[in-house]
Design a binder for these strands. Sequence first.
RNA 1: GCGACCGUUGUCUAGGGGUUAGGAUUCAGGCCUUCCAAGCCUGUGGCCCGGGUUCAAUUCCCGGCGGUCGCACCA
Length: 503
Amino acid sequence: MSSEKDFSDTIYGLSKKRGFFWGPSPEIYGGSAGFFDLGPLGKLLKNRLESRIRSEFVRAGFWEVECPTVSPEIVWKASGHLDGFIDPVTQCTKCGQVFRADNLIKELAPEAKVDGLSPKELTEKIEELGIECPSCKSPLGSVEPYNLMMKTRLGLAQDAYLRPETATSTYLLFRRFLTFFRGKLPASVFQIGKAYRNEISPRQGVLRLREFTQVEGQIFLLEQDEIDWPSFENIEKEVLPLLPYQPQEADKSDVTLTKMSDALKKGFFQKPAYAWCVYVAYKIFREMGFSDEVMRLRQHLPTERAHYAADAWDVEIYTKSFGWVECCGIHDRGNYDLSRHQEFSKENLSVKVDKKPVVPNVLEIAFGVERPLFCLIDNSYVEDEERVWLRFAAEIAPIQVAVFPLMGKDELVGPAKILFESIMNAGFVAQYDQGGSIGRRYRRQDEVGTPYCVTIDYETLEDGSVTLRDRDSMLQTRVHKDDLPGILEALISGKSRFESLEK
RNA sequence: GCGACCGUUGUCUAGGGGUUAGGAUUCAGGCCUUCCAAGCCUGUGGCCCGGGUUCAAUUCCCGGCGGUCGCACCA
């Protein structure tokens, strides 16, 4: 087998060649790191993932919303992103190390006053105090503000930022949600949309992007709800691969297959509602086509957690390219966000509990779509002596069925095109191809993961039967063309198996 | 952002101060072909960008952009 680095090259090569994704974008101008274009197949695949995500959220009782990607500065002031992410940084002119300027000054000159100083003033302060690079004693460069958010402007003068997460824009609707949900909590909503992070140094292709599609589900609820969570009963017998923080601290990384009810008893999860969210996240990834063997749920170490987070678990996916990849975070955000927005907006974001105002808590499921997209291609790639193919689950494959005339003869091409039309009309994403030998066309579809191919031949002209070919086994069977929509539907949805078609 | 290495058709790659820049594969068209990348013919397409050195730069130098790895960063 190829090395890890070689394998990601293989995936990126195939993706570029077959039109899953291209980049960095804009390619003809040399590209900017952290931006990628989705080609036709990548977009089809992403649409399928999003629709699985969407239906899984809906099934779990979430309602979808959509908010602007740009919000004025005050929003990010309130959310904490502005202060949290405008760091005054200085860099050593010789060794290149980067430091937080304010922290560095405080550390080396505790009596100096640095709070509220501009980058320019901080630069002067560093000169004044004769501070140099702590590791190599060389002069430091001027202090520059660095913020992870992308800045823009509304009209002439109002500062605004592109959202670094969709969640914050969702929280701003809380009062509207209260009305929509007729004053009842818990209330569950989710959003699928673009988010932007001005990463200093994007790496690993589509795994760390400056612009990406985020999916974030939020449950607004009261503390009591977190304990009394009836839906937990539906999933308490589910067994998930858990990796709590304790074994990690002992440098162990073996998952424990744990029943959810036991996980709660053992204290892996504090609250049933949070545990349920972890299950929902896991279920979404299952629905996207990941098998249990390549997934695990890893709890953040206490040192890894955000200061306000009571608990945090990640869904991780094993890839042949990069090993375990963090794909989804499940966070207990407490009432931090709503409290902050209440404070900054002066709007009442509380509900009445026993006649007293209480700001509700938030549980969150958050992930980007591009990571699972990449992981899925990585996981689906299969290669043997004969061919290369993507073993997508039929339901998420970008193209579901390809239609070929056995040869490019007029008497076969005509009927093949008619059949292609009827398959499209039946609602399938289909592709027609008459270029090259039949074997080459099968291989082409294998390489983009098309689960089924249909071939029209001379027998079709006599009795209406066609060849139906299965991607993974390369087996073929004859069926009547009029039965195809039903057969394909059953195969793709998993209601029947290809082997059972064989007579 | 720093350091090291790197950037040649759609993809993978050979090469190198003066070349018709080579190969494999893909792709398009044609011939052939009654089910798994066959064969034959034809064709499209390339030296990341800018500056410098030089009679001459894709090749050497500098800068930019991008990539890989390491450091840092990753709410």
